[in-house]
Design a protein around this nucleic acid. Structure first.
Lengths: 347, 347
DNA sequence: ACTTGGCACTCGTCGATCGAGAGTGCCAGA
DNA sequence: TCTGGCACTCTCGATCGACGAGTGCCAAGT
């Protein structure tokens, strides 16, 4: 009857199984945890847990293994996110502190996360669409080409080259470039991408006929950059950790590696977070819609400037993972990266 | 005695083994290739080849398998690089043509190479140190900070933020920024990195005391960017192909994945090319100095603007690979990428 | 109404044995 | 120098049986 004890048993099973990676039997359980009841009682509880679909026996005479649903209950009701040790927190800070630009921050973050959790780490680049324009620079190239450099508040830089169809090297041309430069920065600097895109379009409509063509070329290239999908990028690290945990994957790790190369679906996955951005999101095994990742769990969290989450990062591993510790690491790293980005962004 | 025939036998062994991935015996050989001699004769040749260390029998009563040295001879003396089919060439062109900036070129290239060869592809970013400065832009941020944007002739962009320690928002400050901008571009634009670095340093020495500090801050940040090691980056794709070829790797693919995450050593490896930049370089198995990659072969080639090779790309796979086809793909892609970069660079 | 010890039963694992098949090395003859 | 023949070796896969872990259920205890 005691539901409480049944959950204690579930928790014990998860913990033991995570540690030993072998199906856990009733006898081993009562030996390693002081549950205050006998093995036979535990067996009865196990039978119930199996009926509820929380655990499962690989074959008649082996111990029990948690199902995806079992891990779900464990994560939701039976575990607390372990705070990280002092040393680890300091290590995170030091490792990320030395980053020199945004690429470097992302690079260091993903490696840090991989080595901390010993799993595959995934970090999404801060998304442009939710970002703001910091500055747009125009650099003449050759006689009629302009290189457009778009600088984003997260520190990211995008560039494009366009042909204006006009000679820009004479005084008139130089004046034109200067006027376009100041014009677009006036309406777009400091403004979120979506707003900037519409304002720039309006700017073109209002322009003199004479300069319209050149301005139009610049704005349309910028528009591409502002909405472009390619901007959504992810970086991975720690794939080797999959091989180490090879025994956890029934059908070899090939399909998992394949799924990891589909950056587009990975991004979609990372984008689906829970409601509360301060919370770590966990997707377990078959909860996961992506083919190939259904034997894995994804622990992820948003990060980025202040309360606005601009991107996500996370960790992917076997469903048999140490959730409390992994969740702690992911959360700590996400918070740290957010801090770093805030500092860099401080105008 | 006939050395020629012995080499024919070696070639046949390599071809069959690559295709079937099973040790090849004398009988199978005479059936599949018309060598004009009997199985017994082939056996004698095999015994000699084994003495020379070119082939090797996994156990007493199995067929023979080429050794690393055997593959070496095959690559050097027994194979011609197969030209690619018309369709493939066109596919390469189309796939790379749509690239929008340097990141995109590299990204597409690595994916293309991976899917073409069905192996792990490695592409090095065009190295900065062998590149030239196209333009340097300065963007004020806040009251005393400057963002420095360095634009490289390959299309790459680097940026840094420095604190000049001066107020830049008043007229004096704006003039200072303008003068620094024109000063550094005058000496550095269009110039190779190494030269630019020394010229910039001289510029600082000659500056007025009043503006020296601000200029110095800018130049020292630029100096960092010009020599920085982080600039050396590689991108990978196709790791999943390792898993597919899993049977080829005696000790699981873990160590290989680990080695692939050591970007620094990967870069060193890619940097070691043969003398002739037009030639594809092949490093086979144990020829490879990196721990973990000694069961793999690396097929690589330099690429980049015109005759100056600025970086390398390649493919990593099991020693049992189809060398002629792989070499053809690598060479074709390298040439195409070179072309694309040349176009983009055309001033 | 739970809990507990006991016991029969089920299966998967491990190791040994064995036969089949593939391939070799060597020899004697052309 | 090549060829056919033949004895030998070694791996691979299947079969078998003992072993052990773990369960499910039952009857007795609290």
């Amino acid at each position: 009857m005691s539901e409480d004890r049944r959950l204690m048993v579930l928790r014990a099973i998860v913990q033991d199984y995570v540690q030993t990676s072998e199906p856990v039997g009733s006898k081993a359980l009562v030996e390693r945890h002081h549950l205050g009841v006998s093995a036979a009682t535990v067996r009865n509880d196990m039978a119930l847990l199996e009926e509820e679909g929380l655990i499962h026996a690989p074959h008649t005479s082996a111990g029990r293994v948690p199902t995806d649903a079992g891990y779900r209950v464990f994560v939701d009701r039976l575990s607390a996110v372990k705070p990280l040790g002092q040393g680890e927190r300091r290590a995170i800070g030091q490792f990320l502190q030395g980053a020199v630009d945004l690429d470097d921050v992302v690079d260091r973050t993903v490696r840090l996360l991989a080595s901390l959790t010993r799993q595959v780490a995934v970090v999404q680049y801060p998304s442009l669409t939710r970002s703001t324009v910091r500055h747009i620079e125009l650099v003449p190239m050759g006689s009629s080409h302009l290189m457009i450099v778009l600088i984003v508040n997260t520190g990211r830089v995008e560039q494009r080259v366009v042909d204006t169809g006009r000679v820009l090297t004479d005084p008139t041309g130089e004046a034109l470039v200067a006027s376009i430069r100041s014009g677009i920065n006036e309406v777009a600097a400091g403004v979120p991408f979506t707003v900037a895109a519409t304002r720039l379009r309006r700017l073109v409509d209002e322009a003199d006929d004479a300069d319209r063509a050149a301005l139009e070329a610049v704005v349309s290239a910028l528009g591409d950059a502002l909405v472009e999908e390619r901007e959504e990028r992810v970086v991975l690290a720690g794939q080797a950790n999959l091989a180490r945990a090879g025994a956890d994957f029934p059908r070899s790790i090939g399909p998992i590696l394949e799924a990891l190369e589909e950056h587009v679906t990975l991004l979609r996955l990372l984008g689906q977070l829970g409601d509360d951005p301060e919370l770590v999101s966990v997707r377990i095994g078959s909860e996961n819609p992506v083919t190939g990742l259904q034997t894995t769990s994804l622990v992820s969290m948003g990060y980025g400037s202040g309360s606005e989450r601009v991107a996500s990062l996370g960790v992917l591993g076997p469903t048999r993972m140490d959730y409390p510790t992994t969740m702690a690491s992911v959360r700590a790293v996400a918070r740290y990266v957010t801090e770093i980005l805030d500092e860099n962004q401080a105008t």
